[in-house]
Write a protein that binds this DNA or RNA. Structure first.
Lengths: 351, 351
DNA sequence: TTTGGCACTCTCACGCCACGAGTGCCAGCC
DNA sequence: GGCTGGCACTCGTGGCGTGAGAGTGCCAAA
């Protein structure tokens, strides 16, 4: 609670303790710590310091005669002030960027690869949100006749994203007829941000009503329907969930179940990721810090990724709170950068 | 091993035993069984029969003084010969078909809904393979220019499926130019089965070479690329995995981990589903029967679903071997039918 | 062929105990 | 004043033995 300056020795001991706990997974006692620390201090002295740290709420003893374990506040302080990052293995970076480059022909592929890489390189679960399409502009609208009074509507965005929906319609349309609508609307709407298309359409409908231009009205109606169906469905790709099964720290089955339910719902995790909006760099949620229950015992390391200089999504890793932050944080950071780079194609001529 | 006729009484007892074990999850002893069976037989008699059943490999005693538990062979016989199906709750069927109808505007939605329904109604994990596109016919090809030497290729199938890929190209193309290619190729290829398009293209290229029709060659090259990228990627939608976490029967963590890894790999499960090809109806794999390890302790209930009278995919449920087959089997069956119906739109006028 | 009886086996839960690890505190030392 | 060694105390863990309960196999009688 109270945070007096916390002298240097205490900081070093806290750091050593957290590092030790992260690597060993066992509550660490004064004797152990006295051996692992550069100032050679006796266990007794260390006990005194530990008592202080405990009073400050930074560490905690599971029971009377166990060593100490960092509390969430302890982790927080460790990460904010004491953590020394480990630079990434160069081979890993090469591997990562290679895989991303290879997947760059399809947006979906790219996202999935990034997610898999995150999980693979950390041995935890990797998350990547699909990029937001808010600012994408419409370039083309196509209608294709299907059998049985159905029309396929295809919306093409300027960034190569394609949305399509099958629309039930009240009568049969010929291919020619639909082609006319397509051309008409593409011309009318091309270059508009998708989010603003609806307004334009409504305005257009008003105009048209007076003209009684049936063809145009049909087309507009179809487009309205297509847009309706093409709701943005913000989505999240999760990989490597199985890495979390049977992790010592996840021993609690009920907790694990809640975590996996959260993975299926996705919604709450998405929401949590969105929260890190303001922050530019890597964001860290430790345990239930976020107020989001299912993550108890876990930490979420997240970072936004950019396309054309604009934040379009987030990616990250979920693992046990006791994770090697010094490796994971840089990895999430670099992955976000590489994914952004892969999505904003400059002239990287391949072929 | 040897399967002598197995007299009626033994059958009834086996049936009662399996049912009891499925509902209670505890090895069932002779006393329990003597109470639960219509012929009132003494426990001693039942013990004799049970000894026979054990000799036949149909049941098994975890240890000397525990009751008996069905073996895989026991389950098999139970399912093949003794099981009496329970008819579905009408509310469930209504719910199921309602949800499917509601999702029928998009193929992807439909598959996901079916999978979710399966998991939701069984409380286990639901699986649905994406429909095979083998026999789909191409109706249209579109090329759309993107920024930075990229072209978006869109392939539209006659069933409303849309595939799209971003292609890196070696020079810039104008919209008009691409539109010409699109028209040309759409005309050339429309109505072809996607799987045969490649042949046609190759033949076409030969013809064209002699004509030196550059435009056509460009177009063909683009299409080739698009087809290359649009590999069928047979995929599987899995829902409700979290239902399996913490299920008593799944107590073995290592096993559960393997199961979840299988869920992520998907490939092997897909392969397993494909195996049920020949069978028209519901197929059941009990435990590791399939020779596929990660399913040990689990059963897979699967059925093919049809579109326009043709098998295009499979769906099913994975749960503990000790599952209520009498409910799950009919559910998988009806879900397959309903999904098929939802995908083969006849005149079900809604709207 | 079925049944009651009986001895046997095995698991499970419980209590007990000794062990080890680690602590808190205190008195003495630098 | 801060550091240290010593000491008593606490608590979780694992091994062991025991008793209860469940269920079996077998045998002899109906």
């Amino acid at each position: 609670m109270s945070l007096p300056p916390l002298n240097e020795r205490a900081q070093h001991l806290l750091k050593a303790l957290v590092e030790r706990y992260i690597s060993e997974g066992v509550p660490v006692g004064s004797r152990t710590l006295s051996q692992a620390t550069p100032f050679s201090l006796s266990p007794a002295t260390i006990r005194n310091v530990m008592a202080d740290l405990e009073a400050m709420g930074l560490i905690h003893a599971p029971h009377t005669s166990a060593g100490r374990v960092p509390t969430i506040q302890g982790y927080r302080l460790f990460i904010n002030q004491l953590l020394t990052m480990r630079s990434l293995d160069e081979g890993q970076v090469d591997f990562l960027s290679g895989e991303l480059r290879q997947a760059s022909s399809s947006r979906q592929q790219l996202i999935e690869t990034a997610s898999q890489m995150l999980s693979h390189l950390t041995r935890f679960a990797g998350l990547v949100t699909l990029p937001r399409r808010e600012h994408a502009r419409l370039t083309q609208i196509e209608f294709v006749p299907l059998s049985g009074r159905r029309v396929l509507a295809i919306l093409v965005m300027d960034d190569g994203e394609v949305q399509n929906r099958v629309l039930p319609v009240s009568r049969d349309y010929s291919g020619n007829e639909l082609r006319k609508y397509s051309a008409l609307l593409s011309e009318q709407l091309a270059g508009q941000e998708a989010s603003r298309v609806r307004e334009t359409l409504l305005a257009e409908m008003d105009k048209v009503r007076s003209d009684l231009n049936t063809l145009m009205r049909e087309a507009i109606q179809l487009t309205e329907q297509a847009l309706d169906a093409a709701t943005p469905e913000p989505d999240l790709v999760i990989s490597g969930q199985s890495n979390l099964v049977g992790l010592e720290d996840m021993s609690n089955l009920a907790r694990m179940k809640r975590l996996f339910e959260a993975f299926e719902t996705k919604r709450d995790i998405l929401h949590l990721l969105d929260q890190s909006e303001r922050a530019e760099g890597v964001q860290i949620f430790i345990g239930g810090e976020s107020g989001y229950d299912p993550l108890e015992g876990c930490s979420l390391i997240a970072a936004p990724y950019h396309e054309q200089g604009r934040v379009v999504g987030y990616l990250g890793v979920i693992g046990p709170t006791r994770m090697p932050y010094d490796r994971v944080i840089p990895l999430v950071d670099i992955t976000a950068r590489l994914l952004g780079a892969a999505m904003s194609p400059t002239l990287e001529s391949e072929l």
